[in-house]
Amino acid sequence: MLWPGTLIGAGAGYFIASIPGAMLGALLGQTLDRRLQLHSWAHLRERLGGRATLRNDELLFVLLGRLAKSGGRVVEKHIEQARQEMRHLDMSAAAQQRAIAAFNRGKSGRDSLRGYLGRLKTQPHAAEGVLRACWRMMVADGRVDPKERELIVLWGRWLGWTPQQVQALGADYEPQKKPLATRGGTYQQSLTLLGVTASSDPEQIKRAYRRLLSRHHPDKVAGTGASPAQVREATEKTRELHHAYALIREQRGFR
């Protein structure tokens, strides 16, 4: 791959001192590319515009932020899903702060992501992990907006996936919805689902919710060699846990 600094250095060097100058310029430009992490012309434009290039641990959350915003506005369920991804990745406090900043950066939609995603083509496991996290964000609010679907198909193509493969992956996260309960009886059912009672304090409820999410997370189930049907069941269980926790928080008035 010829990176922008390399090309600019080679061109300037050739103009100044012909072939020897081009070789020296290319070497200096390559050093600049590596130091500034310039992988494409889009990255160069970002740096010239005062925007830092994305670290590997920031890219995912830029994608999630853009997905959350693409449907029109970011809602609490999107934010909670981003927090869940941080917990799933066991991020340190500093990494979480970078992830939050990246999520907010993603909402602006100003980053050119093709070059970043293109680098993951040679890392199939990482590429799949990114797409799965994107699907989880897409269904966090209970629906998939057409703009969100267009984005994930586009990103999948940049990762080397066909639209059919991306849609097939989504089958793990778009199961047939089962009616959770009518509004009148939901609170008690939600308490039962989380294994808590009406007298449990908020911290107990949060711990129960996180413990159950960790146990039923689709990625964790998939890692045990489970069948696609079992992964879909875990995805539906996770969705029910999200709904139950949100309803309990609303009823009890805590964040």
Rank of each mutant, 00 (worst) to 15 (best):
A10E: 10
A127Y: 05
E150F: 05
C134V: 12
Y187S: 01
K147C: 01
L113Y: 04
R157M: 14
L24Y: 09
I8P: 15
F103S: 06
L113W: 06
R35S: 02
T224F: 10
A234K: 00
D172S: 13
H78E: 10
W161A: 07
D111L: 00
Y209F: 08
A26H: 03
L59S: 00
Q84S: 15
F103T: 13
R114K: 15
P163E: 09
A93I: 12
G253V: 11
R98M: 11
G29P: 08
R232M: 06
L24E: 06
Y209M: 04
V139Y: 03
S199L: 05
R55Q: 15
F15W: 10
G106F: 05
L24D: 09
G106Y: 01
G5V: 09
V144E: 12
G11R: 09
G184R: 12
L36I: 10
L131D: 03
R149F: 01
Q204T: 15
G160F: 07
L32A: 15
M137L: 06
S18A: 14
L213D: 02
G50S: 12
R143P: 06
L151S: 00
E150I: 06
F103W: 08
E76Y: 10
C134F: 05
E250C: 04
L59H: 00
P20T: 02
R232S: 12
H217M: 00
R47A: 10
A68H: 05
A68M: 02
L7S: 10
S112D: 08
Q204E: 15
L63T: 00
P4W: 09
F103Y: 08
Q167K: 05
F61H: 14
E240K: 08
T162Q: 12
L117M: 15
R47G: 08
I152T: 03
Q30A: 15
W161R: 13
Q164A: 15
T192E: 14
A82D: 10
R255M: 11
A229Q: 11
A68Q: 04
L67E: 04
Q167M: 14
T235Y: 01
R66Y: 07
Q84P: 08
Y187K: 03
L24N: 09
V153A: 00
M86C: 14
H217A: 10
V130M: 11
